[in-house]
């Protein structure tokens, strides 16, 4: 009996330590959020704040009024993330349907070649893409980032696996009834794919929102930048004497992904751990 109650206390102790660690994990986020509300003149005053001292939006206004085209940059990030997501949903579902459900010569060979893509890091493709983009005028253009993000080996692989785990009797019956492949894809296969599609959408959106390596290589001008590039820039422009304004920009920059996570926590975790795409 005594042993049991001491076990309960050890258990509670572990949970208490974990809660403390959890709070410490969140401190950088609490700090950036509360600093974004601190009057600019007091930005460097110590101790730092971890809870907003006021709810004055002056720093947010200062970001928008600054010489860095923040709204334009924000728009670029949205365009890149949203268009890449839509693109991947279209190209990957089409391909996954063909690889999982249709028979045609060379199918498995093509799929195998496609799987190779999982092995190549961005570092191996970036130089030729840079040279090619320089030729066709896609450097310093967010659309260049969209184009290279329109499909992914991972997306195709994931959707194909998912589709293969679904029963295919309905599709076969529709085929017997003389329905065309497009109709079968659109009416029967696509609705079955819904859970996998939202996972892919979340992964692609956060992946594009967070990307740094390729934008850094392909974009230099402020007007074409995405947010991850701009944060470093803002630190230089606004950072002299003013952390508060940088952190106001930061709060706005992380907002979409934080909201997504708060609303769809489980789905985000499942998607990200499955794909291994990280910030």
């Amino acid at each position: 009996m005594e042993k049991k109650s001491s076990l309960v206390w050890i258990d509670r102790g572990i949970v208490a330590v974990l809660v403390l660690m959890g709070i410490m994990m969140l401190l950088p986020f609490m700090w950036l959020f509360s600093m974004s509300f601190r009057p600019a003149a007091e930005a460097y005053r110590m101790p730092p704040s971890f809870l907003p001292p006021t709810l004055d939006l002056a720093n947010y206004q200062a970001v928008l009024d600054s010489s860095v085209p923040f709204l334009r940059i924000y728009w670029n990030s949205l365009v890149v993330a949203v268009l890449s997501t839509i693109g991947q949903l279209i190209t990957c579902t089409l391909a996954a349907f063909a690889y999982a459900r249709l028979r045609f010569p060379g199918r498995d060979g093509l799929f195998f070649v496609m799987l190779f893509g999982l092995m190549f890091p961005a570092q191996v493709t970036i130089l030729p893409i840079y040279l090619g983009y320089a030729q066709v005028g896609l450097l310093n253009n967010p659309l260049g980032l969209v184009l290279m993000g329109l499909t992914s080996s991972f997306g195709i692989f994931m959707l194909r696996q998912f589709m293969r785990s679904q029963p295919k009797e309905l599709e076969e019956a529709a085929l017997m009834d003389g329905a065309g492949y497009w109709k079968i894809f659109w009416r029967i296969s696509l609705p079955q794919l819904k859970p996998a599609l939202s996972a892919l959408a979340i992964i692609t959106f956060t992946g594009a929102w967070n990307a740094y390596f390729q934008p850094r290589a392909l974009i230099e001008s402020q007007d074409a930048m995405t947010l991850p590039l701009a944060m470093d820039l803002l630190r230089g422009y606004l950072g002299q004497g003013n952390i508060s304004i940088v952190m106001a920009a930061m709060s706005m920059a992380i907002l979409p992904v934080v909201l997504l996570f708060l609303v769809a926590q489980k789905m985000v975790i499942q998607g990200v751990t499955f794909s291994g795409i990280r910030g």
């Binding site: 990307a211 630190r235 992380i254 996570f261 926590q265 985000v268 910030g279």
Partner: peptide, 28 residues
């Protein structure tokens, strides 16, 4: 609720861009 908190605390850094959190850490 405790489970939600732990997932939030330990997984939030994973999904926020390294480019963002590194700027924060540079001030830390």
């Amino acid at each position: 609720p405790l489970l939600y908190f732990f997932r939030l605390a330990f997984f939030l850094p994973v999904i926020i861009a390294a480019a963002f959190v590194s700027v924060v850490w540079s001030y830390f």
